[in-house]
Simulated assay, not measured.
Amino acid sequence: MAVSVLVVDDSPMARKMLIRALPSDWEVTVTQASNGLEALSCYRQGGVDVMFLDLTMPGMDGYQVLETLRHEDLNCLVIVVSADIQDAAQARVRELGAIDFIKKPVDAMRIKAVLKEYGLLV
Rank of each mutant, 00 (worst) to 15 (best):
M1A: 11
M1N: 05
A2H: 07
V3Q: 07
V5A: 07
V5E: 00
V5G: 00
V5I: 12
L6I: 01
V7N: 07
V8G: 00
D10F: 09
D10L: 07
D10H: 10
M13G: 05
A14Q: 14
R15V: 13
R15P: 09
R15Q: 15
R15I: 13
K16V: 04
K16G: 09
L18A: 09
I19P: 01
I19R: 10
I19G: 00
R20L: 02
R20D: 03
R20T: 02
A21T: 04
L22G: 00
L22Y: 04
S24I: 05
S24V: 06
D25M: 08
D25G: 05
E27Y: 03
V28Y: 03
V28L: 02
Q32G: 09
S34M: 13
G36D: 03
G36F: 00
G36P: 02
L37T: 15
L37A: 13
L37G: 05
E38R: 09
E38Q: 15
A39S: 05
L40M: 15
S41F: 08
C42Y: 01
C42I: 02
C42W: 02
R44V: 07
R44D: 12
Q45A: 15
G46N: 12
G46L: 12
G47P: 02
G47Q: 00
V48N: 01
D49L: 00
M51I: 01
M51L: 03
L53W: 02
D54P: 15
L55Q: 11
T56S: 14
T56K: 14
P58E: 15
P58T: 11
G59Q: 14
M60S: 10
M60K: 11
M60E: 07
D61Y: 09
D61E: 12
G62N: 11
G62I: 07
Y63D: 09
V65N: 03
L66V: 10
L66H: 07
E67I: 08
T68S: 14
T68R: 10
L69N: 09
L69V: 10
R70F: 11
R70I: 08
H71R: 13
H71T: 14
E72A: 13
E72R: 09
D73V: 10
D73T: 10
D73C: 11
D73H: 14
N75G: 14
N75C: 14
C76M: 04
C76S: 10
V78P: 04
V78M: 12
V78D: 06
V81R: 05
V81Y: 04
S82Y: 06
A83N: 11
D84P: 12
D84L: 12
Q86I: 00
Q86V: 04
A89W: 05
Q90S: 04
Q90C: 11
A91E: 13
A91R: 08
R92F: 02
R92K: 13
V93Y: 03
V93S: 05
V93H: 05
V93K: 03
R94Y: 03
E95N: 07
E95P: 00
L96H: 06
G97M: 09
A98D: 02
D100Q: 06
F101I: 02
I102L: 15
I102P: 00
K104M: 03
P105C: 12
P105T: 05
P105Q: 06
V106S: 00
V106F: 01
V106E: 03
V106G: 01
D107C: 15
A108V: 05
A108C: 10
M109L: 15
I111Q: 04
K112C: 14
A113L: 12
V114W: 05
V114I: 14
K116N: 04
Y118Q: 01
Y118P: 02
Y118C: 03
G119D: 04
L120M: 11
L120A: 01
